[in-house]
Design a protein around this nucleic acid. Structure first.
Length: 322
DNA sequence: AACACACCCAACCGCCCACCA
DNA sequence: TTGGTGGGCGGTTGGGTGTGT
């Protein structure tokens, strides 16, 4: 026994809304409110499904909606919250005034996901790709690790190709000014040969290292193995060129008129050495609760996979939650 | 200029859950 | 307790538009 449809499908109009329909719906809701969506199209003289009316109102016509571009600040908030909630778009949207879940979802799927991928970060787990590759190495014994790494590389193929080859983005390797002088516009362009070579290197290193130092790749590590161990492998099996002089810091992610911010530039760094890896490296050096560990706690940023909500600046939250 | 491809985003679909009689 | 209903949600689609060749 299925649910009865919310309307007679054959008698309702579908597709794009006209200005006239928008006006009818808006004026009806202005007078009568939104108490019963099933009755609204009928009473408003619209040949639309009630659900369609609700969506049109909530996603487009509502007077409190913003129709402007997402700001850097909003984007950062989305990424932060996505790292906590995943695809709970309504929860995320609730923190951004004037944005709907549909807006947030669309923006994520069309822009933010690519931005993160372009930065070498898996948009699902919010971990760097190299970190994920390292997780594989810490979980499986050779030769499975090498095989799975190859498979994982296949899974990330689109991201990797996007990262390395997409012409319009013209990925920029951002290095410290100390290293580059004042020229911060150095570009590294990869070609197919380079991609293949990178891929081969990964496979080779997995196999070779496992052969030479099998004890380095524990066979029974869980996916929740310590970050320190993972970080060491992340460094060891880093897919992309590592530039230890660069890190994403909270400051670099702030919404300032700072063109040097990797976020505002919306470009790829070509490095997977995220601050998380950097932090983990410090963790490894200081196993106990040292100054470095404290520093790590203070360095929570949007790419920290262990990000917790209470680290969010209160200003970012539209509807602070318990 | 014409075509192909990529991208964006409004709209739809179907599932789920809370509420109520 | 149960079934009907409205509304919310996330995933997906497809048409319009932009861009490259």
């Amino acid at each position: 026994m299925g649910r009865i449809p919310c309307c007679e499908k054959e008698n309702v109009k579908r597709g794009q809304w006209t200005i006239e329909e928008d006006n009818k719906l808006s004026s009806y809701i202005a007078q009568h409110g939104t108490c019963n969506w099933r009755l609204i199209p009928k009473n408003a003289g619209l040949q639309r499904c009630g659900k369609s009316c609700r969506l049109r109102w909530t996603n487009y016509l509502r007077p409190d909606l913003k129709h402007s571009q997402f700001s850097d600040s909003e984007e950062q908030t989305i990424v932060k919250l996505h790292s906590v909630f995943g695809n709970r778009w309504s929860l995320i949207a609730a923190q951004l005034s004037g944005r709907t879940d549909n807006d947030v979802k669309n923006h994520w799927n069309t822009k933010l996901r690519k931005k993160l991928s372009g930065m070498g970060i898996d948009p699902v787990t919010h971990k760097s790709f190299s970190h994920l590759m390292a997780e594989i190495a810490t979980t499986l014994a050779p030769p499975q690790a090498a095989h799975l790494a190859e498979a994982a590389l296949g899974c990330f193929k689109d991201e990797v190709l996007h990262l390395l080859t997409k012409k319009p983005i013209n990925f920029r390797c951002q290095q410290s000014t100390a290293e580059l002088g004042n020229d911060t516009n150095n570009y590294i362009n990869y070609n197919q040969e380079e991609i293949d070579r990178t891929s081969d290197n990964i496979k080779l290193r997995f196999s070779k290292d496992a052969e030479e130092e099998p004890e380095m790749i524990p066979s029974n590590k869980s996916w929740n193995s310590t970050a320190a161990t993972s970080a060491s492998f992340a460094m060891q099996y880093s897919v992309f060129p590592t530039m230890s002089t660069f890190q994403y810091s909270p400051a670099s992610m702030c919404n300032k008129e700072d063109d040097a911010s990797p976020w505002s530039q919306s470009v790829c760094t070509g490095s997977t050495f995220t601050s998380m890896d950097h932090q983990n490296e410090k963790l490894e050096e200081n196993v106990d609760d040292s100054e470095a560990t404290k520093e790590i706690r203070n360095l929570s940023n949007i790419f920290n996979p262990y990000y917790v909500l209470w680290d969010l600046p209160a200003d970012d939250l539209n509807n602070p939650m318990v």
